[in-house]
Design a protein around this nucleic acid. Structure first.
Lengths: 150, 150
DNA sequence: CCAAACTGGTCCTAAAATAAGACTGGACAG
DNA sequence: CTGTCCAGTCTTATTTTAGGACCAGTTTGG
């Protein structure tokens, strides 16, 4: 009864969740966007069990979401840095952030905030049609391929 | 050793993952966007264990992501429908889809596809600054609140 | 230059979550 | 009425996770 996997699904959502849809991976990636790079920093900030963290970091490296690079402070240690593939998770993290902000906090409750370089709050993620007009869920549908959609 | 929770985190990403960041919830929501509404339909399409599905659906209802409504075919059964809060997960599902499409398929490998009503492929999710200009990960930072960021 | 502390892990155990299937009770069709 | 469909619940075996003990190489403080 191994946990069901979706690595070979036809649906990109299923494959993406199979890769980074566990409890910790996206939090590690979020911390990486915040500038964390060392094993100990992730461990301290997340409070994750060291064994879990070790396993997750190795998996993320294997997936090419993170890569090991020499420590930036010149020490003999190594650091975990986001790759292009990892940086491309930015919209995933932002979408979760915006949904959380909108629906998971009581009015007035404090939370961290995403701002641009000028300190201005950012806008909402927008899905443009090919022509550039904003689309909502009701404007789109999934074109299935082959037989199954799993 | 209960699974660590983030329901009270300052970070909206952590809260969002606490709510819907398990292996199944987002796949159920994806199927709901595809029009599935009945217990049996979700179960068949996902291949999920019935007990799991039952627990997940109840949690999603409790979270107000789904709601129970009378069956649309006039039978005595009920259906699960997306609420506003659930429909607001659209960008989350789309961001995962686009990341999966871009990074998880071999060239030429078939996958399902998101298109608009005219059958045109949609564009990439875009994060606008307040002024409407596209932002990338390096243009933004998280403004922390209070003491902790977990 | 030696001891202590830090870094980045691995290994072990107990508890919790998951998968898979058996079982149940109400709805519905013939 | 009888058999089948629907929407679950319950049980059990297996896997995953949390948390801590342990360990080897690195850096720091005196």
């Amino acid at each position: 009864m191994k946990r069901t996997g979706f690595a070979k699904a036809d649906c990109p959502v299923a494959r993406a969740l199979d890769a980074i849809g566990d409890w910790w991976s996206l939090l590690i990636v979020r911390d990486a966007f915040d500038g964390l790079r060392r094993f100990g920093d992730f461990q301290k900030n997340l409070g994750i069990a060291r064994g879990m963290l070790s396993a997750r970091l190795h998996k993320l490296v294997e997936l090419d979401v993170l890569e090991l690079v020499p420590a930036s402070d010149g020490s003999a240690y190594q650091e975990y840095a986001l790759t292009k593939k990892g940086r491309d998770l930015f919209p995933v993290v932002v979408s979760l952030r915006q949904w959380g902000e909108a629906h998971l906090y009581a009015r007035g409750e404090a939370h961290s905030d995403l701002v641009d370089q000028a300190g201005q709050p950012v806008g909402q993620l927008m899905l443009p049609s090919r022509a550039g007009r904003p689309l909502t869920w009701s404007d789109t549908r999934v074109r299935k391929v082959g037989a199954r959609n799993r």
